[in-house]
Amino acid sequence: PPQTPIRAAMNSIKMLRGDLPSSGDQPSSKLATYFKNCTVDPTQGIQKRLEMLGQVFSQMFGEAVGPHCIAYGRERFNLGVRLYYKVMEAMLESEEKRLSVQNFSKLLNDSTFHTSLLACALEVVMATYEESSFKNGGCSHGEGEQAVRDLCFPWILNVFDLSAFDFYKVIESFIKAEPTLSKEIIKHLETCENFIMEKIAWRTVSFTNVSLNRRIPHVCRLL
């Protein structure tokens, strides 16, 4: 039988949940080994950052959707954390193969890298839920629909006070590292990329910076 929008949405969410390890709110033993191989062990920093960002996320989610929905925000955040750990592990495996190194101390102690990666994981989770809300018309009543729109990209950048440029940097590696992403989600991430490139990555100083880099061939063409 033809798939209804509601069934399609349920399947997407089920797939997202099913693809993630159930014990994934903690790093796997393999990921923990990568942490231990670092010159400076990033484990505590990562835990603290997750606690802090989890509180900010739940609070802002509640402000956008309503205080009675904070628990849903927390649930989405936890799902995002599982995806964040899973993708981080895949990225490190790929980097280990490519660079023949096991010490990723600098990368794993880079707060911007972690925040960007977590933001991307959460964008995937949110898009899976929100896309279904749009498709099945579940939020056709004005207030709910507005709340869902409020959570759309670039909402997550404001929540984590993350620059669009830094978020942009993780997208491609994220897609490479997570082969189970649906084509709708990949399309969504590509839309985010285009939105960043065409609109929100540009600042007043960007044009000055472009002018200062005339020697780079791409920049010459751009000018």
């Binding site: 990368l107 709708e184 990949i186």
Partner: peptide, 21 residues
């Protein structure tokens, strides 16, 4: 699958993007 355009070269990865070697 969706035809995503991968722009990174073979020798580039997340480490280079965050300035780590």
């Amino acid at each position: 699958s969706h035809d995503y355009h991968f722009g990174l070269e073979e020798h580039e990865g997340i480490s280079e993007l965050f300035d780590c070697d």
